[in-house]
Nucleic acid binder design. Structure first.
Lengths: 143, 143
DNA sequence: TCGATTTAAATTGTATACAATCTAATTGTA
DNA sequence: TACAATTAGATTGTATACAATTTAAATCGA
């Protein structure tokens, strides 16, 4: 058995599926004017306003090198505002604009639309979902 | 229940885990002078020489826009050679150099080293791998 | 058989990722 | 309380991804 065979690699399916999912989100998000990472940021901001870049980054496992330009793009699109926190000028806080709040309604059908495109075996889905949760728990541990 | 809650998204864990896995490969691949996508390409070329860019792309779900510069980098690193196919000049074929073949030996421990960083049950891994591979197959079907 | 179509790569332009470094603000402490 | 550490973002540089377009080669069809 060849340990370097592509089909033996655990990691490759994660990489391939992740990109395939992003591909399937694209046509659903295009009418909203969002990319997939931008959509993820909006999900986090829709949950709670006033979060810092740092807090959003911890949620999505992204750092300022990725988030700073991405948030600036969303600000340029008038979906949110980046405001320095008065009590601690090192932080920026993210607030929704009216347009950003309005976009949430348009986004509401996206999750179900996406699942419909997946058309996967229910049994596989359960196995994967359970395994993913174990992996996420284990991997977010600082070991 | 909020359908836009990040924790409800099935797709986010794929995105997060995929990037986490890439992060864990980095220190293992750095001594080989490879990035993770470059490593994947080498896996495919180690399996069979003479494959076209197109064939490699189908295996990894990557197009020429990604692969052309990546293969040029691997050629510049003297790991492989890009050769126009004489019978059909539209194709390029990928062949290993001696250095490229030699690197294979160095890479042999990488898969096991990576699994060790995941710290998960080996049996669990086999089950997940099989389910994920079925997902990849299903999702890359043109449905 | 010759122009239209198809095909494989390459190119262009945009948008992530992320390590490494820098800057400015805050905090801890001798 | 100066001032060294720490912290949050921003910046820089490199490496993907991928849509859209271009180029060159091969094939198809009237």
């Amino acid at each position: 058995m060849n340990p370097l065979a592509l089909d033996e690699q655990l990691c490759f399916p994660f990489y391939a599926i992740s990109r395939e999912i992003t591909r399937r989100y694209r046509p659903l998000l295009e009418p909203l004017g969002l990319t997939y990472p931008q959509y993820l940021v909006m999900l986090v901001v829709w949950e709670e306003e006033g979060q810092s870049l740092k807090a959003i980054g911890e949620r999505l496992h992204l750092d300022s090198g990725t988030l700073t330009p991405l948030l600036k793009k969303l600000e340029a699109a008038d979906l949110l505002r980046r405001v320095r926190k008065p009590e601690d000028e090192r932080h920026i806080q993210i607030f929704l604009t009216d347009a950003g709040r309005a976009l949430r309604k348009q986004a509401e059908t996206v999750p179900l639309d996406l699942v419909r495109t997946l058309d996967v075996d229910e049994e596989d889905l359960q196995v994967v979902k359970a395994a993913l949760n174990r992996l996420v728990m284990k991997m977010s541990d600082p070991d």
